[in-house]
Design a protein around this nucleic acid. Structure first.
Length: 377
DNA sequence: GCCCTTTTTCCTGCTT
DNA sequence: TAAGCAGGAAAAAGGG
């Protein structure tokens, strides 16, 4: 007698779920979930981002496990289905050790971590606006009271304007767009056109989109192009290749931003304050990853902590995180590294010759030295 | 509206 | 050969 193979069952579950007309969102979807077009456009993939784990059905749980197994490149066939027939509430009651016991030391911690994030996300989401404001204020005060200079730069939003969750969590779930970002009214068509323009565009050095499933950063669905960064078709120029085929080529420079006049949500506050501080710069983003190893998850490491020499371990994953932060789904390490190289001139970074993916903080950078942050790392 | 800064994108050539 | 690096050029976007 052979134990049922999880992967085949999961495949079947997915087929059943997505090919028989069964709604993507289970009927027991809790009330209070946003019903913006962005949600519905995104709901085909990773629906579990929109549904609290407490409401997951056994099928939902299976699909989630399947996704996580795929993300972590875990061989799902080694799991027995007998362990996967639990529903959301049962799943939520499990602690980390229990998950490791069932799913093993490789997949178990990942599942537990991911589940906790979903739970936290939905707890935040279920808050009303005043509650959210109050929570944000409490967090703000908490961060202010922490005697940790870098954390003092983090502002938790007040349900208006840009809900500043940028440093909120940028390890493996850097985007909270589904729960907190202003919704955009564009539909699937625009999403497609973005992806399309990305895929149509091709050059020797930059293939535009890449499969995120190949990265370690597990979230960031592959189809989540930000409509804000859709390239207007008019901006594309046709070029001829040597083979005589016509190819679409994106012009140089940053693509223009599409206005958000339809984006009305509780998070859309009054017009952006012109004198509001700028977002974190790239070098600060990099620095913050380095000085928060608990959020780092092997993305970068110090080569020489005292000298400020560091190395990218998962360059494309870091680039994707930076892209998420800037709402730019087409960010790549190549582009990120170009921005990094501009820092040489300003002495924010120094060259480290002959070493790939290795950079060094320069004299015009700050906030990374052990003395500055007042903690041993 | 102009200027400056900071990216972002594209590109070519070079190095590892 | 692929990936990464270097740096010029052009453009967008935000702040002053």
């Amino acid at each position: 007698m052979s134990s049922p193979c999880l992967s085949s069952v999961l495949t079947h579950a997915n087929l059943t779920m997505y090919q028989t007309g069964i709604p993507d969102v289970p009927p027991q979807q809790p009330t209070g979930l946003p019903s913006s077009p962005s949600f519905s456009s995104n709901i085909n993939s990773q629906w579990y981002r929109q549904i609290s784990p407490h409401f997951w059905t056994p099928d939902n749980v299976l699909e989630w496990i399947s996704d996580q197994a795929e993300i972590t490149k875990f061989d799902a066939s080694t799991l027995s289905l007998a362990y996967c027939a639990m529903d959301g509430p049962a799943l939520c009651q499990m602690n980390r050790e229990q998950m490791i016991g069932i799913f093993g030391p490789e997949l178990g911690p990942h599942l537990h971590h991911n589940l906790q994030e979903h739970k936290t996300k939905h707890e935040l989401q279920s808050l009303t606006v005043p509650e959210l404001n109050e929570t944000c204020q409490l967090l703000d005060n908490f961060l202010d009271n922490l005697n940790f200079p870098l954390l003092s730069t983090i502002r938790i939003g007040h349900a208006e304007g840009d809900v500043s969750k940028r440093e909120f969590d940028y390890n493996n779930d850097y985007d909270l767009s589904l729960t907190m970002e202003p919704m955009t009214p564009l539909g699937d068509t625009e999403y497609l056109s973005d992806n399309q323009s990305d895929s149509e565009y091709s050059s020797s050095s930059n293939s535009g989109m890449f499969s995120f499933s190949s990265l370690s950063s597990p979230e960031s669905g592959s189809g989540e192009s930000d409509p804000e960064f859709s390239y207007p078709l008019i901006s594309k120029a046709h070029i001829k290749t040597e083979k005589g085929e016509c190819r679409l080529k994106r012009p140089r420079g940053r693509p223009p931003k599409v206005s958000r006049e339809h984006g009305s949500s509780i998070y859309d506050g009054p017009k952006k304050n012109k004198h509001a501080p700028r977002g974190t710069h790239l070098w600060e983003f990099i620095r913050d990853i380095l000085i928060h190893p608990e959020r780092n998850q092997g993305l970068m490491k110090w080569e020489d902590r005292r000298e400020g020499v560091f190395k990218f371990l998962k360059s494309e994953a870091v680039a994707q995180m930076w892209g998420q932060k800037k709402k730019n789904s087409s960010m790549t390490y190549e582009k990120l590294s170009r921005a990094m190289r501009y820092y040489y001139k300003r002495e924010i970074l120094e060259r480290v010759d002959g070493r790939r993916l290795v950079y060094k903080f320069g004299k015009n950078s700050s906030g990374w030295k052990i003395e500055e942050i007042g903690m041993g790392m």
